[in-house]
């Protein structure tokens, strides 16, 4: 029989530590598949976040560094500047990348740092128990917005991808979801393009992955996927936000 789908070898053979229905595992599977297909596992270095996916280094079979909350882009910069021929990626949640680490991600993008960042947006702080994140939707109830997010008090959900797109140094930015097989195929293609953007020296690349958090949203996995499609995608539209064809280092 032909293989339709098998677990990629670059994803280590152990069960994920995530809640049922959480898409961290799916996102990491796609990253592992692309690394495997590009044949770069031997020279790829991942930088983990602080959050639910702090244990990403337990799952993808490449070298890893994990530091402080939100600082992965700076750590990745240090690694890449030290070893320019390695493929370096950061993997971060919304609190990590779009709250405490906002300065680091903006400047890594603006420098056109040759790294790839994966931004898992589930609209809450997951590991700490479901508090408001910068990406929490208006009216969305969380542990710290019990009456729903009020823009008068908390401001607006943060569209990081769009924000980074206007910077000269960013070369490829896309937002994806993993709620349907068709979306998953598109997401994998975007992840591949992001790594290639880095490897071809075009500039910074970021993939924002909309992800359900059934546990902290108080929903079943299926309800969470439906809520993501109904509520999150209209505010965080899917697609390629920026594709820079030319080499940003050569063309100012």
């Amino acid at each position: 029989m032909k293989v339709v789908f098998e677990r990629p070898k670059t994803l280590l053979e152990k069960p994920f530590t995530y809640c049922p229905g959480c898409h961290h595992g799916l996102a990491q599977r796609l990253i592992a598949e692309v690394i495997e297909e590009l044949g770069i596992a031997d020279r790829t270095i991942g930088v983990g976040p602080i959050g639910c996916s702090v244990y990403i280094y337990e799952f993808i079979d490449v070298d890893f560094v994990v530091g402080a909350h939100g600082r992965a882009p700076a750590i990745a910069t240090g690694i890449k500047r030290s070893l320019p021929d390695r493929v370096v990626f950061s993997y971060q949640g919304d609190g990590d990348i779009a709250a405490i680490g906002t300065a680091e991600i903006i400047h890594v993008a603006n420098r056109g740092e040759l790294i790839t960042s994966f931004f898992v947006n589930n609209a809450v702080f997951g590991m700490t128990g479901g508090q408001m994140a910068p990406t929490t939707l208006l009216g969305q109830k969380t542990k710290t917005t019990p009456l729903g997010r009020d823009p008068q008090v908390h401001g607006f959900p943060f569209r990081l991808g769009e924000c980074l797109s206007v910077l000269e140094g960013s070369a490829y930015i896309a937002r994806v979801a993993l709620t349907r097989p068709q979306f998953i195929r598109q997401a994998k293609e975007c992840i591949r393009k992001a790594f290639l953007t880095q490897m071809e020296g075009k500039g910074f690349s970021l993939i924002e992955i909309l992800s359900p958090c059934p546990t902290n949203w108080g929903m079943s996995p299926k309800e969470a996927v439906d809520w993501l499609e109904e509520k999150m995608i209209p505010y965080f539209p899917l697609g390629e936000l920026k594709v820079k064809g030319c080499n940003s280092r050569e063309t100012p």
Partner: peptide
């Protein structure tokens, strides 16, 4: 053998084979 189940599985717990 469409593989949709394996594609959407967040735990990568499914393998699919086809003739």
């Amino acid at each position: 053998g469409c593989g949709f189940c394996a594609q959407v599985c967040p735990d990568v717990a499914i393998a699919v084979y086809r003739e």
